[in-house]
């Protein structure tokens, strides 16, 4: 990664920059600083837009009014109400169990498939890559409807097995793509070296390859967890009746309008996400590595 930001090339998109001729400019330094400030202001503006809805909900979660009206009067009663809201709490539990189990299985299957694609598949790898990209780019609504109709035709219908398998089929390709990206940059020399020193295939894999790809397997698992937790269309069409995941529960609450309990829940969940994200980032930084989660995501999308 090139990290020369000290001397930025003129803002190519900034309307402020008058297209002058090249060469040394008398006030080049102050100009560059002013431009840098402009770009940072834009970044903060974008962050402001991203966090506005979130902050509004956070503030309102401490507002006494049941209908979100002003003037603002501080209260914590919605958090007490949230603690007593069994529907939301058990839905959170269901979502956590589902996402954790799907992420674990997706990690195992996805890593195996990635290894096979990179190491053993000859012509199959291209086919699988096409298959995985298809699975990722089809809208979840259409995938969910297709899975449900097949289940209905077979006579299985909605149910926990279908919900689990459907979530797995959506989440696993992401693990594969993340791990494949890492494996392709790795080569087989180290594993072969271990083999030539007498390690059995499985031992070589466990002692050499697995530690090398461990970080990407972890990022892939995290991604699978987030995707499963988030996958409302799959939950909505495949979950058995009465088994409401958290997104489904929020959906039913939201359809009936403003709800202070959801404000409190949103505040808790988003705070957890931001806190966890920043902690992971700090850990990745201390290890001297690149920010794992974001850079892996970039690898995927890039």
């Amino acid at each position: 990664m090139a990290t020369n930001t000290a001397a930025p090339p003129e803002s190519t998109a900034a309307p402020a920059s008058s297209g002058d001729v090249g060469g040394p400019r008398p006030d080049g330094h102050g100009r560059a600083r002013r431009q840098r400030r402009g770009w940072l202001a834009w970044l903060w503006l974008v962050l402001g837009v991203v966090y506005t809805p979130v902050l509004v909900v956070m503030v309102l979660s401490f507002n006494a009014s049941r209908y979100g009206t002003l003037p603002f009067a501080f209260t914590a009663e919605w958090y007490v109400a949230l603690a007593g809201n069994d529907a939301l709490i058990s839905a959170t539990g269901r979502s956590l169990v589902l996402s954790t189990s799907v992420a674990a299985v997706a990690a195992a299957l996805g890593t195996a498939l990635a290894l096979w694609m990179v190491r053993f598949a000859r012509s199959g790898a291209t086919l699988f890559t096409a298959l995985l990209t298809t699975a990722i780019t089809i809208p979840w609504l259409i995938l969910a409807v297709a899975m449900l109709l097949v289940a209905n035709a077979v006579g299985v219908g909605r149910g926990l097995p279908l919900l689990f398998l459907g979530s797995l089929a959506v989440a696993m390709p992401y693990v594969v793509l993340v791990v494949v990206a890492r494996l392709q940059g790795l080569g087989t020399e180290l594993e072969q070296a271990a083999r030539s020193l007498g390690a059995r295939p499985l031992t070589a894999f466990r002692l050499v390859t697995l530690p090398l790809i461990g970080k990407s397997v972890l990022s892939g698992t995290l991604l699978a967890f987030i995707i499963t937790f988030n996958n409302f269309p799959i939950h909505f069409f495949l979950a058995p009746f009465g088994f409401n995941t958290l997104p489904m529960e929020i959906y039913t609450f939201v359809l009936s309008g403003y709800d202070p309990d959801i404000n409190a829940l949103a505040t808790v969940l988003i705070s957890v996400a931001v806190g966890l994200g920043l902690v992971l980032l700090a850990v990745a930084r201390r290890r001297g590595g690149d920010a794992t989660a974001t850079s892996r995501l970039q690898e995927m999308w890039g």
């Binding site: 809805p53 988030n230 409302f232 997104p247 996400a273």
Partner: peptide
């Protein structure tokens, strides 16, 4: 990274 339903609600 949280539920998109929460963002829609927000």
């Amino acid at each position: 990274l949280t539920s998109s339903l929460l963002l829609i609600y927000a």
